[in-house]
Amino acid sequence: MSSHNASELPILCSSGQLLLQPLWDRVRAREALTQSPLFAVLFSITTYVGFCLPFVVLDVLCPWVPALRRYKIHPDFSPTARQLLPCLGQTLYQHVVFVFPLTLLYWARGPAPWPREAPELLQLARHVVGCLLLFDAEFFAWHVLHHKVPWLYRTFHKMHHQNTASFALATQYMSAWELLSLGFFDMVNVTLLQCHPLTVLVFHVFNIWLSVEDHSGYDFPWSTHRLVPFGWYGGVRHHDLHHSQFNCNFAPYFTHWDKLLGTLRSAHAK
Score class of each variant (00 low, 15 high):
S7T: 14
E8P: 04
E8A: 14
P10Y: 08
L12T: 07
C13P: 05
S15H: 11
L19R: 05
L20Y: 03
W24Q: 02
W24V: 03
R28P: 04
R28K: 06
L33Q: 06
T34Y: 15
T34L: 14
S36D: 01
S36K: 10
S36P: 07
L38S: 05
L38W: 08
A40P: 02
F43G: 02
S44T: 13
I45W: 11
Y48W: 11
G50P: 05
C52P: 01
L53D: 02
P54Q: 09
D59P: 09
D59H: 07
L61A: 15
L61Q: 07
C62Y: 01
P63G: 02
P63V: 04
V65F: 08
A67R: 08
L68Q: 04
L68V: 07
K72M: 04
K72E: 03
I73G: 00
P75N: 07
R82S: 12
Q83P: 02
P86M: 01
L88I: 15
L88Q: 06
G89R: 06
Q90A: 12
T91G: 06
L92S: 10
Y93C: 15
Q94K: 10
Q94I: 15
Q94E: 09
F100I: 15
P101F: 02
P101Q: 06
P101A: 06
P113Q: 02
P113N: 01
A118F: 08
P119W: 09
L121M: 13
L122E: 11
R126F: 13
V128I: 14
V129G: 05
C131W: 06
C131L: 09
L132E: 12
L134V: 14
L134Q: 05
D136E: 03
E138R: 11
A141I: 10
V144K: 13
L145Y: 04
L145H: 06
H146T: 02
K148Q: 11
K148P: 07
Y153N: 03
Y153D: 02
R154G: 14
H157Y: 09
K158C: 12
M159K: 11
H160P: 08
N163G: 12
N163S: 13
L169N: 01
A170S: 14
T171Y: 02
Q172L: 13
Y173Q: 02
E178N: 12
E178R: 12
L180R: 09
S181K: 02
F185T: 05
N189S: 15
Q194K: 14
C195D: 05
P197K: 13
L198V: 09
V202N: 03
V202M: 07
F203G: 06
H204C: 03
I208G: 05
W209E: 07
W209C: 10
E213N: 06
D214C: 07
H215A: 02
Y218M: 06
V228Q: 10
F230P: 00
W232T: 09
Y233D: 04
Y233W: 08
G235M: 01
V236M: 01
H238K: 00
H238P: 00
H239W: 03
D240E: 15
L241Q: 05
L241E: 03
L241S: 01
H243Y: 08
Q245N: 09
Q245I: 00
N247D: 14
N247M: 10
C248G: 02
C248N: 03
C248S: 08
Y253Q: 05
F254C: 12
T255C: 05
T255F: 09
L260A: 15
L264H: 06
S266W: 00
A267I: 01
A267G: 00
H268W: 01
H268A: 11
A269M: 04
